[in-house]
């Protein structure tokens, strides 16, 4: 079990964020397996991509800042990158799938857009 030698408070904090992030990510991936159809499954990966990534990156930030004795926040870049790219891939997949379902004429997607809901 090799691990960096942190003070106890930092070790507990890093462990908490790390395990919580991994759990949220696992939950999202389980959703990918359990949810019934493609459009519902589209919601599952964003669990890992938002909260899961965020928690693990916070753990990494605390760990390296304590290790090197100065604030080290370059993990923000990964967070920024994932926040910007995940919506792009998911939106592209959603519209590609809608297009395919409509061309094939199967009933996974509605034939017409639903009418706008008015308040």
């Amino acid at each position: 079990m090799s691990a960096p030698d942190l003070p106890l408070w930092a070790a507990i904090l890093v462990s908490f964020f790390l395990v919580a992030g991994a759990l949220v990510t696992l939950l999202g991936s389980i959703g990918l397996w359990r949810l019934p159809d493609f459009y519902a499954r589209l919601h599952a990966p964003s669990l890992g991509a938002t909260l899961g990534t965020g928690l693990i990156l916070v753990a990494s930030m605390i760990c390296f800042s304590v290790l090197q004795g100065r604030p080290l926040v370059h993990e923000v870049l990964i967070g920024l990158f994932v926040t910007i790219t995940t919506p792009v891939t998911l939106m592209l997949l959603a519209s590609a799938s809608l297009y395919r379902d409509r061309v094939e004429g199967n009933d996974a997607a509605p034939k017409k857009d639903p009418p706008p809901t008015e308040l």
Partner: peptide, 9 residues
């Protein structure tokens, strides 16, 4: 899209 539960189509 980032909030799970809603997806922009």
């Amino acid at each position: 899209t980032c909030t799970p539960g809603t997806q922009w189509v």
